[in-house]
């Protein structure tokens, strides 16, 4: 059984949840409530850590509600790595769909050649973008990075669509990103997405990571080619770039004979 199937199922389930949770709330069933910026399941509150961090900076104080809502995402991040991005984020699913579309349209996207230090360049852009956003946010005094959080926009718009029967122009932002996705290979997730960047601060090497278990393999590099984050899964599985999507584990031909590339806990 391929990991991709489980992943697709989780992604489709989240897309279903995006529309189903507001419907439940319209019928006044309040067990699960919220959007993907912040959500309540029963009494357990969850919130996007970046969103909460922004309001901490802007307000200059911390209260127990903020800390309480960040606990679950951070623990999940420490245990399982950046699974939010690849397994649940609705934008990631759309981006994968655009890659598939690109194949159908026989277009060639701008995809740089793999190099060992490419992740350092990616890191620079990511952190500079996040830092610039935070500075701008401090100047404005308003958590504005939420306004460009793609999964947040998608789920809020779904809620507005279900409850008030209209959508707002914020959806155009996501549409433009998805169009650009056709020409630049995964540029948003790799370089810019502030939520993903902030989540990767909580990446722990002791959590779930992709590792090469055997010392030698056939060196076919198919895992490197399959990686959407443009890293080498054999050596860089424990860096903050890896989002544990499992595409490399699926792609590895050696796995059929003997376990070579695997998800492991340390």
């Amino acid at each position: 059984m391929k990991i991709k199937r489980y992943r697709r199922a989780a992604q489709l389930l989240t897309v279903f949840a995006i529309f189903f949770i507001p419907v439940l709330n319209v019928f006044e069933l309040y067990f699960i409530k919220g959007t993907f910026i912040s959500m309540d399941i029963g009494d357990a509150a969850m919130a996007d850590p970046l969103a909460v961090f922004q309001s901490m900076i802007a307000a200059g104080r911390v209260n127990e509600y903020m800390l309480g809502s960040v606990v679950i995402p951070v623990v999940l991040m420490l245990l399982l790595g950046r699974v939010w991005c690849s397994w649940f984020c609705p934008y990631y699913l759309c981006a994968e769909f655009m890659s598939w579309m690109r194949g159908k349209l026989r277009m060639k996207a701008y995809k740089p050649k793999f190099a060992e230090n490419i992740h350092i360049k990616q890191s620079k852009v990511r952190y500079i973008f996040l830092f610039a956003g935070l500075v701008l946010m401090a100047v404005a005094g308003v958590p504005i990075l939420n306004l460009i959080s793609a999964p947040g926009i998608i789920s809020t718009q779904a809620m507005v669509l279900v409850k008030f029967h209209y959508v707002t122009f914020e959806l155009v932002f996501v549409a433009v990103l998805l169009l650009l996705e056709l020409f630049y290979f995964r540029f948003w997730c790799r370089f810019l997405c502030p939520t993903g960047t902030f989540l990767s601060f909580f990446r722990s090497k002791r959590g779930m990571t992709v590792r090469k278990v055997r010392t030698e393999c056939s060196d076919c590099m198919s895992c490197v080619r399959s990686c959407p984050m443009m890293i080498n899964p054999m050596t860089m599985g424990d860096t903050s770039h890896c989002n544990n999507c499992g595409d490399c584990v699926d792609a590895c031909p050696d796995n059929k004979k003997e376990d070579t590339l695997k998800f492991t806990f340390k």
Binding site: I21, I37, P143
Partner: peptide, 14 residues
Amino acid sequence: FMELCIRCARCIEV
């Protein structure tokens, strides 16, 4: 309020 609100739309939903 503007500093603290993260626009998660939960109050609108509920």
